[in-house]
């Protein structure tokens, strides 16, 4: 077994372990941390596929930003775990049938006939001067520029909509206005009064 294969199996094992722990662990914070581990090992696997831009972006966006906010919310919510587990047996048949359906669907799509070496050519190994970032960028901004830009605008609209829906001005909340604070003159705050010294009694 060469070193690369060893690394692949190592990452794959950690990934499967972390993914299973995400749904089996009791503490929600631990579940989020296992999801972080899953993302991170997944990025490692992508690196082995020579997709270094996607791998690093996965770490940057999902591990570095999205999961931090996830963790933030999960830590703030005081989730009581025991009521969540009450209906476990009751919902088990439904859950199992949905899971079975998903497994069957995935089996129909992801199998050796569709993704085996005789269906898809083995991807060529690129040389040391191959730049995944450059390749991705040149395709993204030429052939797929419209889908790319439209997707970006849709995301922006969704973001603005989310803010607009949840934002409400509450009149009782007190705000600082930094412009006023900076523009304050000493005369506005302190009044120096000239007065005569008082006579000694």
């Amino acid at each position: 077994m060469d070193f690369e294969r060893f690394i692949f199996y190592f990452f794959a094992a950690v990934l499967v372990f972390a993914a299973v722990r995400v749904i089996t662990v009791r503490n929600p914070v631990h579940a989020v941390l296992h999801l972080v581990l899953a993302f991170f090992t997944c990025a490692g696997l992508w690196l082995m596929l020579e997709a270094e831009f996607l791998a690093i972006t996965l770490v940057l966006v999902y591990v570095g930003a999205v999961m931090v906010l996830f963790l933030f919310v999960v830590m703030m919510l005081d989730i009581n775990v025991s009521p969540l587990r009450e209906g476990f047996i009751k919902y088990l048949p439904v859950g199992l049938s949905v899971a079975a359906l998903i497994v069957i669907e995935m089996f129909l799509v992801v199998r050796a006939r569709n993704f085996g070496t005789d269906a898809v050519a083995i991807p060529a190994r690129h040389g040391a001067d191959y730049s995944n970032t450059r390749e991705l960028g040149s395709v993204l901004y030429t052939d797929y520029v419209y889908p790319f830009e439209i997707a970006a605008v849709i995301l922006l609209v969704a973001m603005i909509a989310a803010i607009a829906l949840t934002m409400r001005r509450r009149p009782e909340t007190k705000y600082q206005n930094p412009v006023d604070q900076v523009a304050v003159k000493s005369n506005d705050r302190v009044r120096l009064v000239k007065m005569k010294a008082e006579e000694r009694q």
Binding site: F53, I56, V59, V63, L71
Partner: peptide
């Protein structure tokens, strides 16, 4: 490596986990 700036950005963004955890 080719995308070293991105790599650094990704790694420095992970430092926050130590603090939160």
């Amino acid at each position: 490596i080719d995308a070293s700036l991105l790599y650094i950005l990704a790694l420095t963004s992970m430092g926050v986990y130590g603090v939160i955890i």
